[in-house]
């Protein structure tokens, strides 16, 4: 499948006399294929927004290569800008203009037909409030307006930074449906969000960034599978048989954690092995369930940002790929 967005070895360094040098992006790679909804995840300060700003020409990179729709950027940005709709960080609009004025001015600057304004207002649910000043809007309504402004160009690539921020539950679901509909119509969507449940529900693939480097990427199922611990939950017909079952499993090299009414097994390649082992001991399984891993736990594991009781994690305390004990999970350009 052709890549709509490719980033290789992207670097951005901030230098300050007082605070020294900080690598916001440290050789970051990313690839998004056409027609996908791609989740772009990372803890606060990991470099997500810097990546998007750099990609869109707002920040000058110190190294690396980027391309959008096959054109190298930022050199070719004027050529591809008409096919890229984007919102970066929180929506910002002139407070005294109405939503319709705001979109009308953007449409004028981008040679977009005026009819498209009504279409996107309808799409994001702002049709009836389009004449009101933006300063009277709630955060969720501003977010809808931001999405509308990004959709105005009917882009081939839509980049949305935290689009669900401030939306009510209904709005989040509408946004999810909208993203899927857009992807089905052929649009490629890059979605940066901290609502990992949403990402898992709507994204085909993800890239996870930590401290300016990619720590994981690929289709959502593959990323989840790569980080599945092989945990299995076992229940027996008789709870009193649990100690004997644990003993038999430990003898076979399986790591077992006992619980009052079940056992948790780790490092199980094939759950059928467990059934056979226990049956040989005359112990009969009533439930054998592989424990599914979710994106949130994978994210917390990969970025090492899970909360620890009694500790206050600082913004830059997360995983850095290439440090001792860490291995890269992804390839390079075109991987």
């Amino acid at each position: 499948m052709p890549a709509v967005l490719e980033i290789e070895g992207l670097r951005k360094t901030y230098k300050s006399r007082r605070r020294g040098t900080r690598n916001a992006l440290d050789g970051f790679d990313m690839r998004v294929e056409a027609g996908q909804v791609h989740g772009f995840l990372g803890p606060n300060g990991s470099g997500k927004t810097t990546t998007l700003r750099t990609l869109l020409g707002l920040i000058r990179p110190d190294g690396g290569r980027m391309s959008i729709l096959g054109h190298d950027v930022p050199a070719a940005l004027p050529t591809v800008a008409g096919q890229v709709g984007a919102i970066v960080e929180s929506p910002q609009f002139f407070p005294h203009f109405s939503a319709r004025d705001t979109l009308s001015l953007l449409a004028g600057a981008g040679d977009v037909p005026a009819e498209r304004i009504d279409e996107v207002l309808e799409l994001v649910g702002l049709r009836d409030r389009a004449g009101e000043r933006v300063k009277t809007y709630s955060l969720g309504m501003k977010q809808r307006l931001a999405v509308a402004s990004a959709l105005l160009k009917n882009p081939k690539l839509l980049i949305l930074d935290e689009p669900a921020n401030g939306l009510d539950p209904g709005g989040i679901r509408e946004m999810r449906t909208l993203m899927r509909t857009l992807a089905e119509s052929g649009m490629t969507v890059v979605l940066s969000s901290h609502i990992l449940g949403e990402i898992q529900l709507i994204c085909d693939s993800v890239t996870i960034i930590s401290l300016g480097r990619r720590v994981a990427f690929g289709p959502v199922e593959e990323v989840l599978a790569q980080h599945s611990s092989g945990a299995v939950r076992v229940r027996l017909e008789a709870v009193t048989d649990l100690p004997a079952a644990a003993e038999a499993l430990i003898r076979s090299g399986i790591r077992v954690t006992g619980h009052p009414d079940h056992l948790m097994l780790a490092g199980v390649d094939k759950p059928a092995t467990v059934t056979r082992l226990l049956a040989e001991q005359g112990l009969y399984v009533s439930e054998l369930a592989p424990v599914a891993v979710d994106l949130e736990s994978v994210f917390l594991e990969l970025t090492a940002t899970a909360p620890v009781p009694g500790q206050h994690r600082q913004v830059d305390q997360s995983t850095k790929v290439g440090e001792a004990g860490q291995t890269s999970t992804g390839g390079g350009w075109g991987a």
Binding site: L56, P78, V84, V88, F94, P95, L106, A109
Partner: peptide, 18 residues
């Protein structure tokens, strides 16, 4: 000044990156 302050300039540059 207001364009810079309210983010309007950034929005515009996303449309016209020159």
């Amino acid at each position: 000044g207001a364009e810079w302050n309210t983010g309007g300039m950034m929005n515009l540059l996303l449309w016209r990156p020159k």
